[in-house]
């Protein structure tokens, strides 16, 4: 079978403030072999009427993925590397539970195909020791895949955070968000952020 050469010491670091909305990551994402030439990454204007701020969002690969737990068809699985995979095409019944329940708003449903698809950390690449497509093309450092030490050297005034609180729910993820130095969590609670 496929031989994996996963580099366990490398992690994904996301810094939404660095996103310049260039969509290069989308173009690269569509090149990922596991997506069927569809981009799974999200690049949004956060509030177009108020500001030019854009944000990029990949799957955060939660430790206890809500998408997988709410799937009625057992179609979403997390593997031993902590990667939460796209829906199993044989099982997905296109109910949208995962799309609506993911706290990060990541999964996409392709209705005609009756299939949910999402970022799977470019499994074809990362399992072979390469970086995800989006991280190889991001020109502004909003998306980075590498070692924690390298990231610390590049961003001395930031801390990688992989714990989130959505209202009362704590979520721990495999992917990190770069926060002000010393931060331990990112709170999303109806506008109350710290």
């Amino acid at each position: 079978m496929t031989t994996t050469a996963y580099r366990g010491q490398e992690e994904f670091f996301l810094d939404p403030q660095r996103c310049i909305g260039c969509h290069a990551c989308e173009m690269a994402c569509a090149e990922c072999e596991t997506n069927g030439q569809l981009a799974m990454i999200h690049v949004d204007y956060v509030d177009r009427a108020e500001s030019p701020q854009t944000a990029v969002q990949v799957c955060m690969h939660c430790e206890e993925p809500t998408c997988a737990r709410v799937c009625p068809a057992d179609a979403i699985a997390k593997d031993e590397l902590g990667v939460v995979h796209s829906a199993n095409a044989a099982r997905c019944i296109a109910c949208s539970n995962c799309v609506l329940a993911c706290p990060f708003g990541v999964p996409k449903k392709v209705e005609a195909m009756k299939l949910m698809m999402k970022c799977n950390l470019c499994y074809d690449r990362t399992s072979a020791g390469r970086r995800p497509m989006c991280a190889t093309v991001c020109p502004s450092g909003a998306l980075y895949y590498g070692t924690r030490e390298r990231m610390a050297a590049m961003r001395p005034n930031s801390s990688p955070v992989n714990e989130f609180r959505f209202g009362l729910q704590r979520v721990k993820t495999r992917v990190n968000v770069m926060m002000p130095k010393g931060s331990t969590e990112l709170v999303v609670d109806g506008g109350d952020a710290r």
């Binding site: 939404p16 403030q17 949004d44 509030d47 944000a55 969002q57 990060f104 926060m179 952020a193």
Partner: peptide
Amino acid sequence: RAALAKAH
């Protein structure tokens, strides 16, 4: 996604 970006 916007709520997360705003919080960040």
